[in-house]
Amino acid sequence: MEGIGYFIDAVMTYPFLQNALIAGVLVGIVCGVVGCFIILRGMALMGEAISHAVLPGVVIAYMLGASFFIGAVITGVLTALGIGYISQNSRIKDDSAIGILLTGTFAFGIVLVTTIGSTSVDVWHILFGNVLAVSRSDLWMTLGITIGVLILIFVFYKQLLLSTFDPTMAKAIGLPTRLIHYMLMFILSLVTVASLNTVGIILVVAMLITPGATAYLLTDRLPVMLTLSAVFGVTSAVVGVYYSYIYDVATGASIVIVATLLFTLAFLFSPKQGVFVRWFRRMTTSKA
């Protein structure tokens, strides 16, 4: 594997590659951990909606010269509130409400980008990431979001676990389940901003769902699932950046492909859940 030696040399030489790798690792960890709760609460589509809804916020923030971070959180949380409001106050069900606002907010973002002219803001980079252009300040922001979100999840782990596993008991003992829901939406917006450069808006949901789903197939304990998910997120990021550099392909997509391959392996060969393993077990027991 001379590619690896070549890659390590390049990492030593070029700061942009170092930044790319650090950003990838951070995003892998934070998305992996948050994603577990998204999966267990059945909110994958919600994750997709929030990540798309971040686009207009980012563009408006850019136009006003404000931080991406603030714009993204505002439109992300507003969209989450909007989805809840529509499904509670009409006969429209949750998934349709999500579909409407996901596309609506995203289209609004695209209109804004095309209005201000594509020379000033690179749509391609926001949508698909540009991990090789991660600046020092981007890195600090990603680090800040990662640490902040991990602390939130660590402190409120007990509340998150109960409201995810048994929302009725959570309500019965007086946990603010609605507040917990919107806190997760807030976290989703933050995580999307942190992932903008690495995988971009379109693919961030893969970083949230795929490593968590892979881990879900391999364990029966939430703490183990959270750890494994973060490990798979980091592995996908590092291996993805490697292939992207060696073969000169889009980094975000390369990372997501690695994550998907890891999922496929778990899907086939997980000791308890693996399709292939279960098939093999059936074959051997029916012969015996």
Binding site: F165, D166, T168, Y216
Partner: peptide, 13 residues
Amino acid sequence: PQRSMIDFDFPVL
């Protein structure tokens, strides 16, 4: 709770 309200695939012992 009613058993039907619980997700029994949940990773919890």
